[in-house]
């Protein structure tokens, strides 16, 4: 199945209650698939094409505030527009799932794949001190599985979760195993606005506090939640790290290309491994820190001008040299040039 379509099908199967979106390349197949499939008939899931990404994310806010499983998807320029709403969702502590099928920027940029929205995704993206949980699939299968996981995490922490994909994964055809249809939840969480219950206080969904002390309390609660997320939810994979002297760090589709470069290097006798963060927030900082102690150098490979490399450097904290290799603006690096970068920037450097 095509990545975007598999992801849309996964949303139906994960028991999503609603999807609100606005077309943008390279992710329009998500809403197109949903409109074609008409999940209202299958599960009762609502699908609506909004007038803008701003409207779409605020529809997500409204439906999420009713305790529903809600999803939206877009690509970079549209995600920028959504960031106001995401900040409000994080502040009001509502669960939701966002998908960013990243394309090259800045500005209108290009429709080709990119990873240049890493900073925006992992540092919060909108205003205020908040975090999204960020999942980075490298395969169509993973983007399907992360839809289910994403909803689970969103509700576990009452926090926005983002799947940070890219145009390669969104547009690629790959075999996938879809999970079984899950029923839509009938639960009414006590924080959801579903109509005031007699004898109970009315429910208010808001991110506003007039007193700074109260707003600080909200922030402290959010920070405590993020510490829990960091403790419990880190996911990553390592390849060939047991005997490695050098390490690649790469995520998403770029990790697949980097893996090829790793195999080519191994054939040449270079002992190099790879770490692939599957969660970008929380970041596998401890794992990278530990690995760095026995590495002669680390090369991050990204389809951007150097973003994750900053988090890798923080984790490594000077224990070994960390360099970055990237192609950007929609250009996909080849395994050959990645290997060359390793030889020049790390081994030769």
């Amino acid at each position: 199945m095509k990545g975007n379509e598999a992801l849309a099908e996964a949303a139906i199967r994960a028991g999503a209650d609603a999807y609100f979106g606005y077309p943008i390349t390279p992710q329009s197949e998500v809403i197109e698939y949903l409109m074609r499939e008409n999940p209202a008939d299958r599960t009762g899931m609502q699908v609506l094409q909004a007038e803008s990404e701003i409207a779409a994310i605020n529809m997500v806010y409204g439906a999420a505030g009713c305790g529903k499983r809600v999803m939206t998807s877009s690509s970079s320029p549209g995600i920028s527009l959504k960031m106001e709403g995401v900040s409000y969702i994080a502040g009001a502590e509502l669960p939701c799932l966002l998908v960013n099928v990243v394309r090259g920027g800045p500005g209108l940029g290009t429709i080709q794949p990119s990873q240049s929205d890493y900073f925006q995704a992992v540092k919060g993206g909108g205003h205020g001190d908040y975090k999204m949980i960020v999942l980075a699939p490298a395969t169509v299968q993973e983007s399907v599985d992360y839809v289910k996981l994403g909803f689970e995490l969103a509700f576990k922490y009452r926090n926005p979760v983002m799947i940070l994909s890219d145009g390669i994964i969104g547009q690629m055809m790959e075999k996938v195993e879809l999970f079984e249809q899950q029923p839509r939840s009938k639960e009414e969480p006590e924080w959801a606005t579903v109509g005031k219950k007699e004898g109970k206080d009315s429910v208010i969904v808001t991110s506003l506090q007039l007193q700074s002390e109260e707003q600080e309390k909200v922030n402290l609660r959010l920070q405590a939640k993020y510490r829990e997320v960091e403790k419990n939810e880190v996911m990553y994979e390592t390849y060939n790290c047991e005997d490695a002297e050098y390490l690649f760090a790469a995520f998403g589709s770029c990790a697949r290309i980097t893996r090829k470069a790793m195999e080519m290097a191994r054939k040449k006798g270079i002992k190099v491994g790879l770490i692939r963060p599957q969660t970008l927030y929380p970041f596998p900082a401890d794992a990278i820190s530990e690995l760095s102690e026995r590495m002669k150098g680390i090369l991050t490979v990204e389809m951007n001008a150097g973003q994750m490399v900053e988090d890798v450097r923080l984790a490594v904290n000077g224990k070994t040299p960390v360099e970055h290799f990237g192609r950007f603006g929609g250009v996909i690096p080849s395994p050959e040039e990645i290997l060359e970068a390793l030889e020049q920037k790390i081994i030769g450097g």
Partner: peptide
């Protein structure tokens, strides 16, 4: 009544 606070201008979308 149960209520939600919307961002500036976004109430109809919410």
């Amino acid at each position: 009544v149960d209520m939600q606070e919307a961002a500036h201008g976004r109430a109809p979308a919410v």
